[in-house]
Computed example of a mutant assay.
Amino acid sequence: MTILVTAASGHLGRHALDALVSAGVEPADIVAGARTPSKLADASARGIRVVELDYDRPETLTPALDGVDRVLFISSSDVRDRVTGHRNVVEAVRAAGVDKLVYTSAPKATTVDYGIGADHRATEEAIAAAGIPAVIVRNDWYHENYLGDVAGARESGVIAAAVGDGRVASASRADYAEGAVAVLLADGRIGDVLEFAGDVAWDYTQLAAAASEVVGREVVYVPQTREEKAAQLSSFGLDAGIVAFVVGIDDAIANGVLADTDGTLSRILGRPTTPLVEGLRAGLVAA
């Protein structure tokens, strides 16, 4: 069985390659796709086949899928136009006739109307319309998303956000990658939609406490209004589109979109998900 990992040079993709090898898949049976293959020289040295794969260049997709049986389709990080590239991938996978696709989506993508979910909803709909045998894994937030906040708090002693008392059931990227790989390698589950999340839903006061433990100084959570958050982001030189995107994430957290956890991910992993403090500490060391 030959397995393709798309966006394999990204953080989640690299963890997925590691998880495949750890699960006993021979490196020669793994194909790692990346927009810039040279970024995967280390994977090539391990015996993994590296191919050019650019969501926005359909001519790279068909060759990358040649001989592939299963695909881990990692969603694009392009927040400006994710859907066009995703639809290119879906069409290429449909034409290739793969046995199974696992797509990394976003929480509640088809049931809650929020900014980051819209692109994933469109992609899930495209996968279904194409008739691809697929499993959707909807990843909640990554611990690593907060490394910048924690690093900044080392100097400021503050984590500020417009999330109110919203909660986040985050886990580490490695947890999500291992879960997706387990689903990809297992037989069955075609048609399933799995909401992946960490075992604990924490609020931002608890995030500040975790940051305090990691950086070795008191860190406090300072609630912001949407307007204050937008002004802060604009002061960093971010354009209006990115500001709206980030504020929209805070809105989603405030509205509980990232708060649910039912243990699905840890059951698939066969172990608890990585605790917040542990994930933050490891991420700062690796950064």
Rank of each mutant, 00 (worst) to 15 (best):
T2E: 15
L4K: 04
L4M: 08
G10P: 01
H11L: 15
R14D: 11
A19D: 02
A19L: 05
A19Q: 05
L20M: 08
L20H: 02
V21P: 01
A23N: 10
A23L: 10
G24Q: 07
E26P: 09
P27R: 05
A28W: 03
A28S: 10
G33A: 06
T36E: 12
A41S: 13
A41N: 12
D42K: 09
D42M: 11
D42E: 14
A43V: 10
R46T: 10
I48F: 05
V50W: 00
V50K: 01
D54P: 07
P58S: 02
T60C: 06
T60F: 04
L61T: 00
P63R: 07
A64C: 05
L65Q: 04
D69R: 12
R70Q: 11
R70T: 08
R70L: 08
I74W: 01
S76F: 03
V79T: 15
D81A: 10
G85D: 06
R87C: 07
N88T: 12
V89T: 07
V93K: 00
G97H: 03
G97W: 04
V98H: 00
V98G: 00
V98R: 00
D99N: 14
Y103L: 08
P107D: 05
A109G: 08
D113A: 11
D113H: 10
D113N: 09
Y114V: 01
G117S: 12
A118N: 14
H120Y: 11
R121G: 12
R121N: 10
A122M: 07
A130R: 07
H143G: 07
N145R: 11
Y146P: 04
L147M: 08
L147N: 09
G148F: 09
A151G: 14
G152D: 06
R154N: 12
S156Q: 05
S156K: 07
G157K: 02
A161I: 02
D165G: 08
D165H: 08
V168L: 03
A171R: 07
A171Y: 02
S172T: 06
R173N: 14
Y176D: 01
A180P: 02
A182C: 05
R189D: 10
G198M: 03
V200C: 12
D203G: 08
D203F: 02
T205Y: 12
Q206I: 02
L207R: 01
L207W: 01
A209D: 07
A211I: 01
S212L: 05
V215Q: 04
R217F: 09
V222K: 13
V222T: 13
E228P: 07
A231W: 03
Q232G: 15
S234E: 13
S234Y: 09
S234D: 13
G237N: 06
G237V: 04
G237K: 03
D239E: 10
D239V: 09
G241L: 09
I242A: 15
I242D: 15
A244R: 13
G248R: 05
A252Q: 03
A254I: 04
N255K: 12
N255W: 06
V257L: 11
A259T: 11
D260Q: 15
D260K: 14
D262W: 13
I268T: 08
I268C: 09
L269Y: 02
R271C: 08
P272A: 04
P272V: 00
L276N: 03
G279Y: 00
G279Q: 00
G283C: 13
L284E: 10
A287F: 15
